[in-house]
Amino acid sequence: MRGTDHIVVSHLTMAYGDFVIQRDLDFTVRRGEVFVVMGGSGCGKTTLLKHMVGLKAPAAGDVLYDGGSFWQATDEEREQAKRRFGILFQGGALWSSMTLAENVALPLRLFTGLGEGEIRAVTGYKLALVGLAGFDDYYPSELSGGMRKRAGLARAMALDPEILYFDEPSSGLDPLSARLLDELILELRDSLGTTIVVVSHELASIFAIADRALYLDTDAKTQLGLGNPKELRDQSPDPRVRAFLTRGESAGVAA
């Protein structure tokens, strides 16, 4: 099953009212790969993520999970589909009235029949996995931004989702934590076969984790490159893609 089509984004156009953000996005995310959506600030990376997870309806086109339409489905089918993925929001988006343990436990309480002891074991393990062992009873407001983000990841992983979405995972993290997070992302892919979609513009992280990457351009308002980031950097026919992946140092010339 690994390597088969998992998520298909088909001729997707995203718009706020009449203002088109990106048009005609067409790509496939394969099962068990780390797929990075990259591009400059304001190009619509996060908006694309919102379309893929059901927070914003497309102006045109569709998203398919395992071949089944996400946006043509009934509300109930969409709710079912949503349980198969976990999302790490940019700022962590933890529920501020709950402790970290309660944050991670909520999806387990709502969607599994696990007992309290089992839930505590799972939340403890998930928090340890993101480097927050022992912080179970802290409230989000008592933590630093990076810790909140990692706690958000623990919550996203609570149900062992098939697909994990990350919105700018390494922004706001120190280099060592960012690297641990990259390792964790690869580990989740390798050990559990999780399909991982990452929105990012951090080159170091993109080169470290991405199996394939999609480049969205702000001015062209569509995708300009799709493939392994190292190959895109060296061989993309489009100078804008090469410029992004080399921080503009090779503008026009393949490095």
Binding site: A128, L129, L132, A133, L180, L184, D190, S191, L192
Partner: peptide, 14 residues
């Protein structure tokens, strides 16, 4: 896989 995940869980000491 389990070995590496276990290792990650203990990578950052409490």
């Amino acid at each position: 896989g389990a070995r590496r995940l276990l290792h990650l869980a203990f990578a950052v000491k409490e």
